[in-house]
């Protein structure tokens, strides 16, 4: 694989609830290489956004432990001023909710220009405006000169999302974190935006973290995929392996719940992602949602096992997992270790 752009090591991001800190991101290690799209999937509340915010240094109240190396430099302990030099320039982020991510009192043009003013102060007024118009064009906004002077409330959700994307790619970042970039969009605009991200990657050699719960988007975009559950990475593999040979019960359950050709009944994962305070901190965190799997198949302290080069799976329960709607296979019994 290529050069390491981002290396997250043993990251723990905890929020204070009452008198205690609870880890929403619990000991996550991941790398993103240059010219690579790392997909992160998982249900709502699994810690995807918390992870992204940690990388961008956007948490105001969270406790962050571990290290995040960006081009070899640890950015967790970086002074604010240096971090601000990176944010919006070398790394940037597309936010989940387009309806609230723009300043309601600022013109669209000014909001995009701001990131240019901050990182390319030498640009002239005219150059800046031209660049902004070009960006609006790139993200497929019709009549960019007109939109330049409009305010967010005059644009539809999809248009606003594209403006946010324009802000994020304005300075051609080396690392782009896209948190559900297309959830609010129609499939056709989604396809257009994903093309844009692809282009950024191939032309600039940027690294991309693509967070989504749309498995179809991941299948189309990602080079590698990490599956998160309850603050942990439970499986990570290259995209082909993950979709064709998923191992972790959670990954398999997720894939099984997507409507597919000829599928009559969709798979439902029992229960819900527990609230942060109620996360099981010991043993396999997914165990309570697959109660039909015998408890002795879980590890006491589940770790990631490398089952083939680059393919990691947490806990040993995957070896014994089956869906309750399929007949219990004989090999489950034959497979038990001593």
């Amino acid at each position: 694989m290529g050069d390491k752009l981002l290396e997250i090591k043993n990251l723990i991001t905890s929020f204070r609830i009452g008198d205690h800190y609870y880890a929403a991101v619990d000991n996550v290690s991941l790398t993103v290489n240059k010219n690579e799209v790392l997909g992160i999937v998982g249900e709502s509340g699994s810690g995807k956004s918390a992870l992204a915010f940690s990388v961008m240094g956007l948490h105001t109240k969270a406790k962050i432990e571990g290290s995040i190396l960006f081009n070899g430099k640890d950015i967790v302990s970086l002074p604010k001023s240096e971090l601000n030099g990176l944010r919006g320039d070398d790394m940037s982020m597309i936010f989940q909710d387009p309806l609230t991510a723009l300043n309601p009192l600022m013109e669209i043009g000014a909001q995009i220009s701001e990131t240019l003013i901050l990182h390319r102060p030498q640009m002239s007024l005219k150059e800046r405006k031209d660049h902004v118009i070009e960006l609006l064009n790139m993200v497929g906004i019709p009549r960019p000169e007109y939109v330049y002077e409009q305010f967010p409330h005059e644009l539809s959700g999809g248009m606003r999302q594209r403006v946010i994307i324009a802000i994020a790619i304005a300075n051609r970042p080396e690392l782009l974190i896209a948190d559900e970039p297309t959830t609010a969009l129609d499939v056709t605009i989604q396809a257009q935006i994903l093309d844009l991200v692809r282009k950024l990657k191939s032309e600039m050699g940027s690294g991309v973290i693509l967070i989504t719960h749309d498995l179809g988007v991941v299948a189309e975009m990602a080079d590698r995929v990490a599956v998160m559950y309850a603050g942990q990475v439970v499986e990570i593999a290259d995209v082909q392996t993950l979709f064709n040979n998923p191992k972790h019960p959670y990954t398999r359950s997720l894939l099984n719940s997507v409507p597919a050709e000829g599928q009559d009944k969709l798979h439902v994962i029992q229960g819900i992602v527990p609230a942060l305070q109620n996360l099981p901190r010991e043993g396999c965190r997914f165990a309570e949602r697959i109660p039909w799997i015998e408890s002795n198949t879980h590890e006491k302290d589940p770790v990631l096992h490398e089952i083939s080069p680059g393919h990691f799976v947490r806990c040993t329960c995957y070896k014994h997992f089956y869906f309750p709607e399929e007949p219990k296979e004989a090999k489950v019994y034959g497979n038990t270790r001593g």
Binding site: G216, A219, E220, F243, N244, L255
Partner: peptide, 21 residues
Amino acid sequence: RLVSAIPDIDPSNREKLFQFR
């Protein structure tokens, strides 16, 4: 166009789909 824009869950179809789209 709408139908062609549906993402496919099989990553091996990526190139084909891209072409088609």
